[in-house]
Write a protein that binds this DNA or RNA. Structure first.
Lengths: 224, 224
DNA sequence: ATATTAATGATAGTAACACTATTATTTAAC
DNA sequence: GTTAAATAATAGTGTTACTATCATTAATAT
């Protein structure tokens, strides 16, 4: 399945970038190889200088697109959640039964990216690795309130809210729909991380997916 | 309630520090003011130079205790989980009913630190803020597997396992006890963070605690 | 009380990071 | 073919993350 990038164009505060990286070839190369490089060496070790070297461009050119690497991380993670939101809406749209809809939503959110998933210049496998390993760092900062006010996390928040609404649609009496939605989304990332690095702290493995675990949870908690 | 530090002395790989900070006055001042400074300015902005200035000591002296600030973070977070483990064991020890024991365990894990909690030189309020905002950064690194092997996270893992065992004791048929235990512990931190910065993504607030949310979850999932 | 040792402090130095500014060169647009 | 825009190259600044060396102070042993 191929999408056009425009189809899921994310409406995110343009404060995130100085110049739209989708508007030029260089911009796209920055995003493409930035994702690969962060996946490879980790966000802490990632620098614009190294990225410049990687794409045979110049540090100073990258700074014309993004103020700093933190904003770059916010940009690519926002892109990811916008993409997930698109998948979520697409996959659940035609389902009329509220519980089946919720189940499908969790499936979409928790399922790992397919091996060959790549459209445009974005490698979704690398990007989803980055989400698991680095997403928390985009908001665990002293500037979070300011950036939240500037709309940096609106796409992510919208996604959590969609899930919350689906939970409430199934059972309006369940008292913690927002917490459950955020637990599922953040918890999925955490379970993936544990499966990769702390196997004793999770039941998820090659045969048991976070999907099963959270669907079972939702069934017990909100199914009527 | 006052404890002696020795009582909950954490048995953690001595690879975390170069010189035991509990063994000297300077070491204790490093830990004490390091915690306060990280709470104040955030881990990213924290440096040994700034800490040295704060305690009117020298950068180079701090380096004799900790190789770098990452290891310092691992040290203080390990201390925190060791302290929580102590509280957990102490509070649940005398309870014979398995479900009540589990409930109490969750209470201990999820309840915020009391205002005046401080023993020795450690300010637990600041430390628990650090756990909420910075703990993830201690393991979301490229070195996690290596450090895990070196025992850096053993205290934390032991705590998650204790909770898992309590879950299993209540209901041996529940299929995801490890995942649930890790979800509760990590999820508590996340819900606290959301309450402070993303109120729309959680149901926790001044009157609803993460404790209630997770106890309700456990009740539905594992209570027989 | 003095000599020895250990702990701490002060200073300096290095390489990398996180930028900013300036100028040169290439590419695209009119 | 000229002008403007984008990119590249270079250099520079202040900070970070250390390491090394040496001086000073404090503790301990004789």
């Amino acid at each position: 399945m191929k999408y056009l990038l425009q189809d899921i164009r994310i409406s995110v505060s343009d404060k995130i970038y100085l110049k739209d990286p989708e508007s030029t070839e260089l911009g796209k190369r920055i995003v493409e190889h930035g994702i690969l490089l962060i996946d490879k060496i980790g966000f802490e070790n990632f620098t614009f200088r190294k990225l410049g070297h990687e794409i045979k461009s110049n540090e100073s050119s990258i700074y014309r697109y993004f103020e700093n690497k933190h904003k770059f991380l916010v940009y690519i993670t926002t892109w990811y959640w916008g993409w997930k939101e698109y998948q979520l809406v697409f996959a659940t749209n035609s389902i009329s039964d509220n519980y089946k809809k919720l189940e499908k939503a969790i499936e979409v959110i928790t399922k790992p990216v397919e091996e060959d998933a790549e459209f445009g210049h974005i490698n979704e496998i690398s990007l989803s690795n980055i989400i698991i390993n680095e997403f928390s760092k985009s908001f665990l900062t002293k500037e979070v309130d300011e950036e939240n006010q500037d709309g940096y996390f609106s796409v992510y928040k919208r996604l959590v809210n969609r899930l919350k609404d689906m939970i409430t649609a199934v059972n309006a009496e369940y008292p913690y729909p927002s917490s459950l939605a955020s637990t599922i989304i953040e918890g999925t990332l955490h379970q993936h991380f544990l499966r990769d690095h702390f196997v004793s702290l999770t039941d998820c493995n090659a045969s048991v997916t976070p999907s099963e675990y959270f669907i079972h949870m939702v069934e017990s908690l909100v199914k009527k």
